[in-house]
Structure formats: C-alpha cells, structure tokens
Design a protein around this nucleic acid. Structure first.
Lengths: 138, 138
DNA sequence: GTACAACTTCAAGTAAACTTGAGGTCAAGC
DNA sequence: GCTTGACCTCAAGTTTACTTGAAGTTGTAC
C-alpha cells in the first residue's frame, strides 16, 4: 500500500501540516508509520480527515469526534450514543433551517428593524420553543 | 414597557448572568437602561438571545452574529452578505444530513471497521466532494 | 434606617483548538 | 558525501467565549 507523507495529506485534506501533527498528538489520527522522523499516512487518512471536518462543522468537539469514530480498534463503538447524536443532529438541522429562513427573510424584509417584523419574531419564537431541549455548543 | 432585570432574562434565556454581562461588554446586546448600577432589559432581549443562540449553534462567531443582526440602528444591514450566509447554511445543512446518515449507518452496520464498509466510504467521499467549497469552522 | 441579597466592576483564569518559532534531524538529489 | 529543504519536537503564544473571585454598591423588605 502506497503511503503519503504529511505534505500530500495536508494538501488533499486542505489542512495545514501543523493541524495534522496536532491531531496525531491528541490521538485523533495515527500515521501508518515513520520514514526516519517523518510521518507516513495511508490514503484513508484523507477520508478520515474529511470525516473529522464534518464532525467539527456539526459542532462536535475533537473529543466527541474521537469517541464516535476513534475506537475503531475495539470494533465496538456503542450504538445507542450514536443514535442519540444522530437525533441531536436532526434537531440542529431544524434550527439551522429556521436560521436560514430568518436570514433570507431579513435580506428581503422592508421592516425598519427585525424585531418589529412579525414574521421575524414568529420564526425566532418558534425556534425558542423547539430549541429548548437541543444542545448548545460551548 | 415593563423591564426585566438580569436574573429574569438569564432565567428565560437559559444563560448565566455572567454571559449576559459579557455580551453587553462586547456590544452584542444592550440593556434598555440601568436602575442604579443594575442592568434593565426589555422583554425583546430574550428573543435576541434566542437568535444569538441559533447563530452560535450554526457555528457563527459572536462577531459574525453581531454583523448579521447587530447594526439594527442603521436599519441597513447589507443584504447580499446575508444571502451568502443563507446559502452557506444550506451547504452546511446538506453536510450535516450526511453526517447524520453516517452516524445512523455506523450504529447499524456490522462491518468490523467503518473504513472497510463501502456504504460508509461512499458517504464520506460524497461529502468530501461537495464540502470543498463550504466554510469550515475555526 | 438598616440589613442583606442581588447586583456591580475589573482583573485574572480557563478550555479548546490550533499556530508559531527556535533549534534539531534526515532522505534525496547532485 | 554533502547540501538542502522538508520534515521533526517541544514550549510558548493566540483567539474565542466565557467564568471566577475579590471588593464595592444599592434596591427592597423589614
């Protein structure tokens, strides 16, 4: 299997080498080996990094991401937490759709101030009610 | 108009008073006035905070959020950037749906390692292609 | 009119996720 | 076999978004 060095992975994943070293340091990714001091990665590392980016984009911490896909070795990621994360994502997607609609509305709405626009208020209030149970990032 | 003191707003918004003070300090929210030293807020502050939470959840920085809804006074938030943010949100929503599907799949899939599962790989690769142009959080 | 709980300010501390820089190592091409 | 550029390590610095704590102030209830 052909191995890639850090610069190639960095390039393909669109992340600086310093980030890859950091991820290695915290155990989020693991080089397949070393050539001298230099890290060598399998091509799958690029895929793994795409996965990590996805997790970050969804607001998960690197720790959480490690928990989801990291314990590959054991073969047994607990399923129930994963389902809960998926449900959480569904709620988050709902809220993001509301925010998207809000932004589009504000871009169109002639009201002097958003807070005076009933459509705007309705959307925020709707979210406030449904968002109660959803996770907030910190 | 009846004003709320910081504890009431904190309670209704589900945020600690220290956070409200911090948001005030950075100009993200503005108390309607003071009673002695004490901040007094309009009921709308609660709505505004819900809006801020939504923005945070979508991965916007407090600065970006201020830019979206903050310059209320001027009455003229530039529309084009807002539309672009909305489009960005659409892409993000697409990726989050992929991640959600991935999580659900991993919770079900009997493959010994995700990376060996072709369904898994296909989903990640699909995202990697589409995610290229999308914003990454930092 | 005094007690006190709830507010206030301001400086410093914290956590996550990196980046930067100094000083060292080494594989590859000439 | 030597240069060189790309890698390495490790410590310290950076940014964002807060929290904490000490020391002071004040509206409200008694």
């Amino acid at each position: 299997m052909k191995l890639l060095d850090i610069a190639e992975v960095s390039e393909k994943a669109g992340l600086p080498p310093s980030t890859l070293r950091y991820y290695d340091e915290i155990g989020l990714i693991t080089p397949a080996g070393r050539k001298g001091l230099r890290r060598q990665f399998t091509p799958d590392a690029v895929l793994q990094l795409a996965l990590i980016e996805m997790g970050k984009m969804a607001g998960f911490s690197l720790d959480e991401i490690a928990g989801m896909f990291g314990s590959d070795a054991k073969g047994d990621v607990p399923r129930e937490p994963l389902r809960r994360k998926a449900d959480e994502l569904d709620r988050q997607i709902r809220r993001m759709k509301t925010l998207r609609d809000l932004l589009r509305h504000v871009a169109e709405c002639p009201a002097p101030s958003h807070m005076e626009c009933p459509t705007f208020r309705r959307l925020v209030e709707l979210d406030a009610r449904h968002g109660r149970t959803a996770r907030s990032r910190n």
